[in-house]
Nucleic acid binder design. Structure first.
Lengths: 133, 133
DNA sequence: CTTGACACCGTAGTGCGGTACGGGGTGCAT
DNA sequence: ATGCACCCCGTACCGCACTACGGTGTCAAG
């Protein structure tokens, strides 16, 4: 069974125009289309679009998401390059996780301070800032 | 010792205009300023701006970052509300961490598949997509 | 007391990531 | 064969987060 663009869009909670936009930008592959008729999407298209939405919410740009997605496309040919890029992305992600954990720790500390009814004038949010780059 | 806007900007790797912009948007508090002279920043200003940069890279909008920062400002007055908002943010952050871990797992799997010289035609990146939301 | 680097302000322009619109075409249902 | 919902395309527009610009003011060093 194939899906129309509208069905994919509804299942992803985005607009039809967004999917056409992603197609123009090369984030999702052109769906099969019988000579200027409607686009026909495989059910997996929904997962691709959801991946894009999720990655965006995690601070990746569409350019980066495109890179991420392209890792699978040409993997057979230039395996070493793919591996390198994947490892770089893993490092990025690990850094993001560390920073999020720092922010979380700071916020937890804030709620604890709150419970204790102290006015938290010495701001705990500032402690979410390790000084290494 | 106080800093000029240019010194803060250089230490944060942003432009002077960016800091003025953050000030206009209420993300950083107005620095003390002797009656229409230059802005005088405390050294902590550098940390605030770096916090904003970092939070942006983690997928928070300036609106959200403003909320995050405001948690410290009026904490003495509406402690319960602050606690609630902080807890909501913690939940957001935990969700982000989970999604990042899923992406990382998928990428690690990709590099492993790569090592094994298999063409990874069954895309492991797609597995970064849990279907709950 | 001049000079040059930097700061001040407001407004306009940029790039990203969509979002809306208008004028059509398609396709199935009645 | 006539609706009607949905799709096609291109182009214009939008909000966010800056970034650049241009004309003026400040100030510390020489």
């Amino acid at each position: 069974m194939t899906l129309t663009i509208g069905q994919v869009a509804r299942q992803c909670g985005v607009g039809v125009e967004t999917i056409r936009f992603y197609e123009r930008e090369g984030l999702i592959t052109q769906p099969s289309r019988p000579e200027f008729g409607f686009r026909k999407y495989p059910p997996d298209a929904v997962r691709w679009v959801r991946f894009i939405q999720r990655a965006k919410a995690l601070g990746f740009s569409l350019r980066e998401i495109k890179d991420l997605l392209s890792l699978r496309v040409d993997s057979a040919t230039t395996c070493d390059a793919v591996k390198g890029r994947a490892e770089a992305k893993i490092a990025d992600i690990e850094k993001k996780i560390v920073h999020l954990q720092e922010m979380k720790r700071a916020l937890v500390k804030l709620t604890v301070a709150c419970r204790g009814k102290r006015p938290t004038s010495e701001c705990p949010i500032l402690e979410a800032l390790g000084d290494e780059d």
